Amino acid sequence: MTDFGKAPETKVAPQFVATDYARILVVDDDPILREFAGVYLSSPTIEVEVAEDGRVALERLKQGGIDIALVDLEMPIMDGFELIAAVRAEPSLENLPIVVITGREDMEAIDRAYGTGATSFAIKPLNWRLVSHQLSYVLRNSRADAKQRQGRRLAEQADGLKTNILRLMRHEFNTPFNVILGFGRLIERHSDNAAIQGHARQILMAAEKFRRMHDQLMESARILSGDIEVTKKVFSVADLIKAAAREALRAGGKSTDLKLADRTGNCEITGDYDLLLTALRNLIENAFTHGQAPIHVIGQRTATGRVAIRVCDAGQGMDQTSFALAIQAFKQGHSALHRTEDGLGLGLATAVGSLKAVGGEIHLVSGENVGFGIEMEFPLELD
């Protein structure tokens, strides 16, 4: 039988400290304690229900609507330990706060109850005012945790929706792009009208620019959102520099303005080729767009055994504050609606994201005999 303390001579005012509505289930085989619980815990905002054993309590909990349970550990049919285990096995009840009632010296029972899934405990003989405050505290924390879980679920759903939309856009945009480009080329080739040919060329130029912007946006969104599968491949620093230069030249720029050098001794890397290629290509494109020729791309080993590839130009340069702004997505030192230069403002941010995925980073540097430089540094081998 539960030790419930001395009975009150008269009914006292409700003790439960809570402003929000809550329903408590008190589970105990002692009818007097259940009666006391109703006296001391009920209030205009608190409703108390009772159950005489674990089996009855479990059936009631499965029906829903209970916010917190006060459970005695020693009961017939189904004791408190068995009840807690059964509750935690129910997906809809796995986060229900459960406060157990136990003896003052029974630390073994407290440890076992926590191991089974109890949230807190109350010591016999029960001080109903303290029990009231204990239940209020546990319930408040439980509701705060529930809000955090809901926030995480909503964030995960939003991330999943965003990822699916981006994947759909990458797939579905290819068809209309190809149609526009295909028919534009046909019109340009087969029309005898010079004006129509000129219009076709304008359409092709706009479509190509649109496709490049679309591809960059999709690639950047994938990397910046963390939708990345890192893969390993063996390749040389020299090959990486040459490939990044070729891709950057396709977006604009003169090959005569680009000076490439590999000072690593044809060092080999075991890492994600595509991510490093994206990072370096974006740095070179950024130099073409915002810097001044000549542009030097230099690969070298660092004193710490990593690889550093520096992209330098003869531009004006940038301080650390401006650089910190420039490596953020959609930033060019101006707002997105008041740009003075072409581009999406994603190149440097995407490079940072690509390098971060492979354990690398970007630094602002001053190159030798040049005005401005950015250096990407990364390990020789991906963990």
Rank of each mutant, 00 (worst) to 15 (best):
R306I: 00
R60F: 06
A326F: 05
R306Y: 04
Q316H: 08
I180V: 11
I68F: 02
C312I: 02
I101P: 04
T340R: 12
R212P: 01
T289R: 15
M318V: 13
P97V: 08
D342Y: 07
R152L: 15
T340K: 12
F323S: 11
T340E: 13
A207K: 06
I228D: 14
R301Q: 06
L154G: 00
L161E: 03
R152H: 14
T163N: 03
M218Q: 13
A18D: 04
N141T: 03
V358I: 05
D20Y: 03
T163F: 02
I101G: 00
I46S: 01
K356F: 05
A146M: 12
G182M: 07
L186R: 11
L276S: 12
L276F: 09
L83A: 05
K254A: 11
I269F: 09
A194D: 10
L93D: 06
V311N: 01
L224C: 11
L41D: 09
G5M: 07
R263F: 07
E341H: 12
T116I: 09
S92D: 12
V307H: 12
E94Q: 09
L130D: 08
Q134P: 02
K242T: 14
A248M: 07
F378G: 08
I187V: 15
P76N: 07
Q150A: 14
I110F: 02
A85G: 05
A118E: 02
N174G: 03
T278F: 10
A243M: 09
R88H: 03
H214G: 03
E229F: 10
T256M: 05
D272E: 02
E229Y: 07
Y137Q: 12
T102Y: 08
D313T: 01
L275V: 06
R55T: 05
H296L: 15
A303G: 15
I24P: 06
G371Y: 06
L83Y: 12
H171I: 08
V311G: 03
D145Y: 10
R250I: 13
Q148D: 02
D383E: 05
